[in-house]
């Protein structure tokens, strides 16, 4: 019996290995394991084996059956795989993911990106209300009542005391009222100006404000911080310049220009041939603002800066009309897939 089993193992395995098509393999299987197959025949012959040898023979036959079955399965798999090429599939057909990717809004992605840079420099992020008191938006920021300085920002009023904030700067005073220096914050958010919309103006837009206060912060710290930010965001060695300017809540006040992102200072349409792009307003916190925040005279110095996120997003992505950022047209938004 054992001889017959060994012979069948050798022959069976070889026949399985030689089968070169699923059909051929099927007939091998029937020849071995089918109702009239050779292994089935041996199993039937068990009844003729003597009682003392029968258990061992039975076990050996079972073992052989498992081996042959496994070999058949393997060979089936092989043949299927090998057959794929010959099944003539068009492998250039498109794939299909369960969902199609949506998009994060580029404006808010730029906002996050800017915040990330400042988190890395040790800044916290703060928030304030969009409907703001005249006090925080103007008075506490050293805008005198009835002064032309208030005309720089056309304001939407809700009543005598309440308005839609025209800048993120009111969060400066709100924060300093609660937090003692040293402090470093960015305050991003939506702001409002009563201006007619055109390619570069929107009555709603986004700003980010930065504030750092400590015992001896100087204009040089401002400069280094601004340069570090610009290098990080726009990349590369990029020249900047500080131009004296006027904001009631900082003094000295500056506007920061950077070398044009497109022409690198040679002059082009983006920078109006000047080679420079105005990127933010900044300055040293005015002592009157510290006073409004309740800090003692002369105790601290600090800097603040503010920039338009829309403008930066437009520079970064070559967007030529700010209104695109607020139309939410999917043909626009879909171009920013994968940007976060």
């Amino acid at each position: 019996m054992q001889e017959a089993i060994d012979r069948l193992r050798a022959e069976g395995l070889s026949r399985i290995a030689q089968a070169d098509s699923p059909d051929a393999l099927e007939s091998v299987r029937v020849g071995l394991l089918g109702r009239k197959g050779e292994l089935t025949g041996l199993l039937r012959g068990l009844k003729d084996v003597s009682d003392d040898q029968r258990p061992a023979a039975g076990a050996a036959l079972n073992q052989l059956k498992l081996e042959l079955t496994a070999a058949l399965e393997n060979r089936t798999g092989d043949l299927a795989g090998a057959g794929a090429g010959s099944m003539d599939l068009d492998l250039t057909l498109p794939g299909r993911a369960p969902v199609q990717l949506g998009t994060a809004h580029p404006l808010l992605s730029v906002l996050e990106e800017i915040c990330d840079i400042f988190y890395g420099m040790g800044y916290d992020r703060g928030d304030g209300p969009e409907v703001e008191l005249d006090y925080y938006n103007f008075t506490a920021l050293n805008f005198p009542d009835d002064h032309p300085a208030r005309d720089i920002q056309d304001t939407f009023f809700l009543n005598e005391d309440m308005l839609l904030r025209t800048q993120t700067s009111p969060v400066q005073v709100r924060t300093m009222e609660r937090v003692q220096p040293p402090l470093a914050y960015v305050f991003p958010g939506r702001v409002y100006r009563n201006e007619n919309a055109d390619a570069s103006h929107s009555s709603e837009f986004y700003q980010i404000e930065g504030l750092r206060v400590d015992r001896n912060i100087s204009l040089v710290d401002l400069r280094e911080t601004v340069n570090a930010f610009i290098a990080s965001f726009f990349g590369g060695e990029r020249q900047t310049r500080f131009r004296p300017h006027f904001f009631p809540f900082t003094e000295p006040s500056v506007e920061v220009d950077m070398e044009c992102v497109k022409c690198s200072g040679k002059g082009c349409g983006v920078c109006g041939q000047t080679g420079w792009l105005e990127i933010m307003g900044a300055g040293m916190v005015h002592p009157n603002v510290f006073k409004a925040a309740g800090y003692p005279d002369d105790a601290y110095t600090g800097f603040a800066f503010g920039m338009g996120i829309d403008r930066i997003a437009m520079l970064k992505y070559g967007i030529d009309d700010i209104r695109l950022l607020y139309e939410n047209d999917l043909r626009f938004l879909n171009q920013f897939r994968g940007v976060l």
């Binding site: 969902v99 949506g102 709603e204 607020y326 879909n334």
Partner: peptide
């Protein structure tokens, strides 16, 4: 966005 949703920014007004 990975679930197929696209972010929009709509007006306060």
């Amino acid at each position: 966005p990975s679930q197929g949703y696209t972010e929009i920014v709509t007006s306060t007004f």
